[in-house]
Every structure is written in C-alpha cells, then in structure tokens.
C-alpha cells in the first residue's frame, strides 16, 4: 500500500493504493471516471489514454504509485477547458464518432497534439493519433475535426471560460 497525491481534473486526491494497482483501475473503479475506457489492457488500443502533466499516456500500462504528484486530465475535465470544448464541438459537428467508445481517448490525445502544435498538419495529426484505435473507422472525420479546431489553439485564444 502506498499513499499518493494526485490532481485529477482539477481536484486534489489523496489515495492509498495497492503496489500493483493500475492507474486505469484507480481512475475507473475508484474515482468513477468512465471516460477512460479499455479494450486491450496492454497498451495497444489507446482507449485508456489520459493526460499526465499534459502528456498523453496509456493508463492501463501505468502503476498508480508511479503517477504520485502528477496532474491528470481526462475528457470529463477537458470539458471545462475552453479550447478543448471547441475541439469537442468540432468532433460533434464533423460526426467524428460512431459508437463513441474511443472518442474520449481521441479528444484527449488530440487536445495534447494541438496544445503542443496548433499548426499540426494532416500527417502530424495522423501520426500523433496513431495510438488510438477506432473500430467504427471514423478516422477521416476525426482528422477533419482536429484540423478545424486548430485556430482555437493558437496564442491568444483563451483556455478558460
């Protein structure tokens, strides 16, 4: 058992976790964060992607103890970020989802792509989103959605409401 202090979607959490506890389980089962999905449990599908100190990582392959001290963002939290909200709206408008099971992972990853490079081109967007699988095949729509949200990630556009 280990004590960890993390900030999840803006809320500080002080948790006691098992040594072998996986972050995916901590987030889903203990904190009720259901946007974090899983489909392979071994780092392939990317549906468990969360932002850890603003970097996308696959939470099924992380021990909860390892993220002690980090700031974790998921789709639920990004809803309160103005830029990410625009990105989400772009996903909605472009129909960049079918069953929706992978959508939060794409939104989360795309947010980090545009945050680090608002000028990301088709190829970069594609390459950076490679770690998430959408079996419904909404990839064309996802690319369009991300591209058309780029302007809102440029300097000057606010992050908070």
């Amino acid at each position: 058992m280990k004590e960890i202090r993390i900030n999840v979607n803006g809320v500080f959490r002080h948790l006691i976790v098992e040594d072998n506890e996986i972050l995916l389980d901590t987030l889903r089962t203990r904190l009720g964060i259901t946007s974090v999905k899983a489909a392979c449990w071994r780092g392939e599908c990317g549906l468990c992607t969360v932002l850890i100190d603003n970097k996308p990582m696959k939470s099924c392959m992380l021990l909860s103890v390892e993220v002690d001290g980090s700031e974790i963002l998921t789709a639920e939290g990004l809803y309160n970020n103005k830029r990410a909200r625009v990105l989400m709206e772009s996903f909605v408008k472009h129909g960049a989802m079918q069953c929706g099971f992978c959508t939060p992972a794409f939104v989360t990853t795309a947010h980090s792509v545009l945050s680090s490079n608002p000028d990301a081109d088709d190829q970069e967007i594609s390459e950076k989103l490679k770690g998430v699988i959408c079996r419904c095949g909404t990839y064309f729509q996802i690319k369009e959605a991300v591209k058309s949200a780029r302007a809102f990630y440029k300097d000057g556009s606010p992050e908070t409401f």
Partner: peptide, 23 residues
C-alpha cells in the same frame, strides 16, 4: 442534412454510460 448524433456530447465527454461502465 448533416446532423450530429443526438448523444454526441455524451460521447465526446465520455459520459455516455455503456454496460462496461456499470457496476
């Protein structure tokens, strides 16, 4: 016309509840 699925906002925020999420 091009109409987004009615549950789109639940999907983008990951709040649509699948049986996977139910306990």
């Amino acid at each position: 016309e091009k109409v987004p699925q009615v549950d789109s906002w639940l999907k983008v925020t990951g709040t649509l509840r699948y049986s996977f999420d139910i306990s």
